[in-house]
Deep mutational scan, measured.
Amino acid sequence: MLDDRARMEAAKKEKVEQILAEFQLQEEDLKKVMRRMQKEMDRGLRLETHEEASVKMLPTYVRSTPEGSEVGDFLSLDLGGTNFRVMLVKVGEGEEGQWSVKTKHQMYSIPEDAMTGTAEMLFDYISECISDFLDKHQMKHKKLPLGFTFSFPVRHEDIDKGILLNWTKGFKASGAEGNNVVGLLRDAIKRRGDFEMDVVAMVNDTVATMISCYYEDHQCEVGMIVGTGCNACYMEEMQNVELVEGDEGRMCVNTEWGAFGDSGELDEFLLEYDRLVDESSANPGQQLYEKLIGGKYMGELVRLVLLRLVDENLLFHGEASEQLRTRGAFETRFVSQVESDTGDRKQIYNILSTLGLRPSTTDCDIVRRACESVSTRAAHMCSAGLAGVINRMRESRSEDVMRITVGVDGSVYKLHPSFKERFHASVRRLTPSCEITFIESEEGSGRGAALVSAVACKKACMLGQ
């Protein structure tokens, strides 16, 4: 009897593995994704193909990295998701002549009506938060230079001027797309009239992360975010950046690689679950690469896999709870928690219980395998993109072996128990001629924006502006 049951459990697990095998990517698959990513990057950089390229390769006008001589107080704003952060950054000489960066910050959550109302409502709310922060720190009387981390696709015309191309991540505030974001912020500050600010720089969160990590390690020339969304930036040779005049030196390019796949480059790798996630998203047909990796989508992918296993009578005796059938019910943090389970399955059992399920031991094991399959594919897909960037940098610099540091931020990278190990191992397999160091950014977005502002202020002083 026991043997029969054991055989049935083994057969069930084997069927589960057959279904989950769809998520496995072979090294040849990853090399294919990497080569296609490089081709799209090239198209994004070139003037004649930029418009139709899915990977936009947006110039950021960040050319210099901090040298350690900029000092002063800077205000930093960070808008990239449902939370908005205001930070005071003091850049100065530390002990023994070292450079020191001290920060104080406060988080504000953005109400739904500000995210989806008008641009005026959104930026009025942001300036209200700045006003509140300055009151708390008794700094209303000071006109501070301000660095703005704005983590949406922007076409820069200068370091302090950028046109919002399109909202992502659930934002829909009308009247912002096609307009200068810094102008919208300046107008809102003017409307309030109770404080003055000098907006000197606007950067993407990947750029802010790279600059913040450069402060720790001067070989950091790539910034990457794996959180709600997924994106990367890197220092490109100016001669390859056709959208900006000049051939000397390097400029940081914001790849906006989340949109890779929007022209069909990933079609052969998309599964039924991916198509369902895409169809029910706020932007169907867009940001397809990001939807395979980002935390906004990972939990939902797992939920759809679990429903398939229920329908195949391989999980929960073929019956799903009402909660499990509800879109968004299986949160991405559950994926991390399930994979963090120590082996007694308590954590998995508790999560499934909150979803109205009474799982068996085998159910718990199957749910864990589903989570591992989805998150491992995410790590491997992400590795193909980064390997594409790094191999490109090595080739354009004609280096036999390139040493490089990548600064990384984002909740999936930082909080998932195995993502970074799987990701690092896969990147290294795909970049055999590179020695890569990964560092995690601390308060990256805010500190990085302030350091970019410090560079901009120093330049302005040198130019006598």
Rank of each mutant, 00 (worst) to 15 (best):
H137F: 09
I110C: 12
D4V: 09
M210W: 00
A320T: 08
H380R: 12
G407D: 00
E95D: 08
T82G: 09
E372K: 05
D132G: 03
T206K: 00
T376H: 07
P145E: 02
E248H: 02
S64Q: 15
A259C: 07
V427T: 08
T168N: 14
V86T: 05
V241C: 02
R429D: 14
G356W: 01
S212D: 01
Q38I: 05
G72V: 00
I225F: 02
L243G: 02
G295Q: 15
S174G: 06
N283Y: 13
L301D: 04
G175C: 09
M139H: 09
E248N: 07
C233N: 00
E52F: 14
R377G: 00
K296Q: 13
L45G: 06
I159F: 12
A387P: 00
V389Q: 04
S336P: 15
K140F: 06
Q106D: 04
E177D: 05
I126K: 01
G183F: 09
F23G: 03
T326L: 14
G264W: 06
E279D: 13
R155V: 15
E177S: 13
D198C: 01
K12M: 15
L266F: 09
I348W: 04
G227W: 01
K346R: 07
D73N: 00
M202F: 06
K104F: 05
E67K: 13
E216Q: 06
G229D: 15
T209D: 01
S426W: 07
K39C: 03
I436A: 09
G299F: 04
P284S: 13
I293A: 13
G448F: 12
A384S: 07
S281P: 06
I225E: 03
Q337L: 06
G343C: 02
A232N: 08
F133E: 06
D113E: 06
D400Y: 07
D132W: 03
V86D: 00
E421Q: 12
L2N: 03
L270Y: 07
T118Y: 09
G385R: 02
K15W: 13
M197A: 02
T103N: 14
G407W: 03
A450M: 14
L451P: 06
I293K: 06
Q106A: 03
D132H: 09
Q18E: 08
F419T: 03
Y349P: 03
R191M: 08
D42L: 13
E70G: 09
D267G: 03
A208E: 12
L430A: 05
M139S: 14
R308K: 02
M402W: 11
A456R: 03
D4R: 09
Q347E: 07
S441A: 06
L430Q: 09
K102R: 04
V71W: 01
N391Q: 09
L30E: 09
Y349K: 02
C252Y: 00
M57K: 00
G249V: 01
L463E: 11
T342R: 03
L314C: 12
F171A: 11
L79K: 08
G249K: 05
L315E: 00
I225W: 02
G356T: 04
E67M: 02
R368I: 02
M87T: 07
R191D: 01
T354H: 11
G92Y: 13
E435Y: 13
A11M: 15
G295A: 14
R333I: 13
D217Y: 06
G178A: 06
G410C: 06
N391E: 05
G92W: 08
Q337V: 12
K13C: 15
T49P: 06
K32T: 04
M251V: 10
N313G: 08
H416G: 11
M107F: 09
S375R: 04
H218V: 06
K346W: 08
V241N: 01
S340R: 04
M381Q: 06
I163P: 14
I189C: 07
C434G: 05
A456W: 08
A449M: 08
A329V: 12
D247L: 03
S418D: 11
L134C: 13
R325E: 02
L165A: 11
G97I: 05
R325W: 12
Q138W: 05
V241S: 01
M8P: 10
T149P: 06
L58F: 09
D113C: 12
S69C: 10
E112Q: 11
V455L: 13
Q26L: 10
P145N: 01
V222D: 00
S360M: 04
I366V: 06
V33K: 01
D341R: 01
A329L: 13
D267M: 06
D262R: 10
K346G: 09
K90P: 00
E256Q: 07
K102F: 14
R85T: 11
G446W: 13
R325T: 08
V374N: 01
A176D: 14
F148V: 11
C129L: 05
V86K: 00
T82S: 13
A425W: 13
P66F: 13
C220R: 00
T342F: 03
A259P: 13
I163E: 13
T118L: 06
F148A: 13
L301R: 07
A11G: 13
E440P: 06
D341W: 02
N231S: 05
T354S: 06
E322L: 14
A384V: 07
P417G: 12
M402R: 07
V374R: 00
C457S: 12
E96H: 13
T49N: 12
R155I: 15
D113L: 12
G318V: 08
S418I: 14
M393A: 14
G295I: 07
F84T: 04
S396Y: 14
S398F: 05
F260S: 03
I225R: 03
S64E: 14
I126C: 07
F150D: 14
G261E: 03
S453M: 12
D113S: 09
A329M: 13
I436C: 12
D365V: 03
E248S: 06
M197Q: 12
F152Q: 08
